[in-house]
Design a protein around this nucleic acid. Structure first.
Lengths: 128, 128
DNA sequence: GCTTGACCCTGACATGATGTAAAGGTCCAA
DNA sequence: TTGGACCTTTACATCATGTCAGGGTCAAGC
């Protein structure tokens, strides 16, 4: 399977497939005489795994660990679980930070009459 | 005032002050004979404005608009308000996306016994 | 006056994940 | 055989920020 087909089947862009190969996240695909990369179903499976992990917000480095655990038949599920929980906590931190910014903005916007007059509590707050 | 003092007074790193100057977010500071940049209180004031806006998650391009509105005595507060509300909505979108990822992970982690056994619903989910 | 340490300058490289574009080789069907 | 769709590598861009190197400046103390 060429990289284009592997990309379509996995949902990972060609650009990122090559990138993952370059940074060592996935092994280099075997090449045909033409130099074209050749992918198997198992490769596509792994790429889909990566895409799913990205969709859950895991960073590339974490995905490296997940891939290692995935292919380790003797893994302890506790390891995967604590990695997931740590990541969930990090996501929560980020979400709360964004939400706090949002609340601040909503509060300020509420205090702003928002008409033609130049007077504006939002700008005043940014000044302090 | 040298850039170091301006940085301390405003909370913006020297690196970022130079960067903001380079991308045109702030005007270039006047130079002494030595080539050192020289900052006024007004400059520090503007830098603090930028730092506050960054803390509220505004992107540089948005801050450019905010700075223009800030220095426009004839601005309509409605403009600032709608910019802030649009940004708040964007923050909400991001926060909700992170929260959804987090919930998915927590649900999966709950279904994972998390012990020495290799069986793990989290990895199974990533496979699909 | 000289040294020393703290400060400043520019330029470059790095991050993380991804897109895009250029310049060129390959494959297949008509 | 030709055209179009595909592949290759390389390089540059994004966004905000850090850090480092190699060099100039300033001020205080000797």
């Amino acid at each position: 399977m060429n990289i284009g087909a592997a990309s379509k089947a996995s949902g990972v862009s060609q650009r990122m497939i090559r990138h993952y190969e370059q940074i060592g996240l996935i092994p280099g695909a075997p090449r045909r005489d033409s130099g074209y990369r050749d992918y198997s179903e198992a490769d596509v499976h792994r790429l889909r795994f990566i895409a799913n992990a990205r969709d859950l917000g895991f960073a590339i480095s974490e995905i490296g660990t997940l891939l290692a655990l995935w292919s380790d038949q003797n893994r302890a599920s506790g390891e995967v679980r604590s990695l997931a929980l740590a990541h969930a906590e990090e996501l929560g931190r980020k979400a709360r930070a964004l939400e706090a910014m949002r609340q601040t903005l909503l509060t300020l916007a509420q205090q702003c009459h928002g008409d033609e007059r130049p007077d504006c509590p939002i700008l005043q707050r940014l000044e302090d």
